[in-house]
């Protein structure tokens, strides 16, 4: 299963490297969000500082959402060919998950410094813990996004349905990520551990549960 997943992941990755169809528009969209935040909330002011974790995470979630939503769409447009391959169906889900995680991580690596620069708020000093927070938040979002992407791929109006399903679903993750980041800025720092655990639990549960259920989706 793992071997097949690695090959599928490689296929998607080389497609992305050649076309840059997902990452570039998503990253541009993220930067636009940062600009609009600056306009809407008067970026030059100190007002933004307490709001920065929330603004950053909303920016990451919204732009990741664009990239994550497309991963299964590529297969939908190619027809059912992938399902004819003699491989474990779980491998398809794993490869999409890996691709989504990679894409959202790259996106976050671009957007986080950009948000910091544009909104004029320095990133937290505890670099490793901050990186860990980013990874946990982004991986959870990619996992949930892969699951919801797989569920909506066969529907009409896929692009409209996905946010309605995915964004309420990931609300605990958003709370965890924003509050962990707040903790790194010195607001209730003692809560940091609980929020990181919550995010890790979300990541684990929603990688495993869809992986177990994916078999059912490909049978019909």
């Amino acid at each position: 299963m793992l071997r097949a997943a690695v090959w599928l992941f490689w296929k998607d990755l080389s497609l992305e490297l050649r076309g840059r169809e997902l990452l570039l528009p998503a990253a541009i969209f993220g930067l636009i969000i940062a600009m609009l935040y600056g306009f809407a909330f008067d970026g030059g002011q100190q007002v933004l500082r307490p709001m920065f974790p929330g603004l950053l995470w909303l920016g990451i979630f919204f732009s990741s959402f664009l990239a994550v939503g497309r991963a299964f769409g590529v297969e939908a447009e190619a027809g059912q060919q992938l399902l004819m391959a003699p491989i474990d169906r779980g491998a398809i889900f794993l490869s999409k998950l890996a691709l989504n995680i990679l894409l959202t991580l790259v996106l976050t690596a671009v957007l986080t410094p950009a948000f910091s620069l544009l909104l004029g708020v320095a990133l937290p000093h505890a670099t490793w813990l901050f990186l860990w927070t980013l990874v946990l938040g982004v991986v959870g979002f990619a996992a949930a996004g892969s699951a919801m992407g797989a569920l909506t791929v066969q529907t009409r109006l896929r692009e409209l349905l996905l946010p309605a399903l995915l964004l309420p679903f990931t609300s605990p993750l958003l709370l965890g990520a924003v509050n962990a980041t707040n903790a790194l800025y010195g607001k209730n720092p003692s809560q940091l551990g609980s929020w990181l655990w919550l995010m890790a639990a979300f990541d684990g549960i929603f990688t495993l549960v869809p992986l177990l259920l994916f078999e059912y989706l490909t049978e019909v």
Binding site: P172, N179, L198, F202, I205, F206
Partner: peptide, 17 residues
């Protein structure tokens, strides 16, 4: 099935928050 698992996690996170 997936959202039923999510509801208790939502409750936990909101309570901590």
């Amino acid at each position: 099935l997936i959202i039923f698992v999510d509801v208790p996690i939502v409750y936990l996170s909101v309570r901590w928050w």
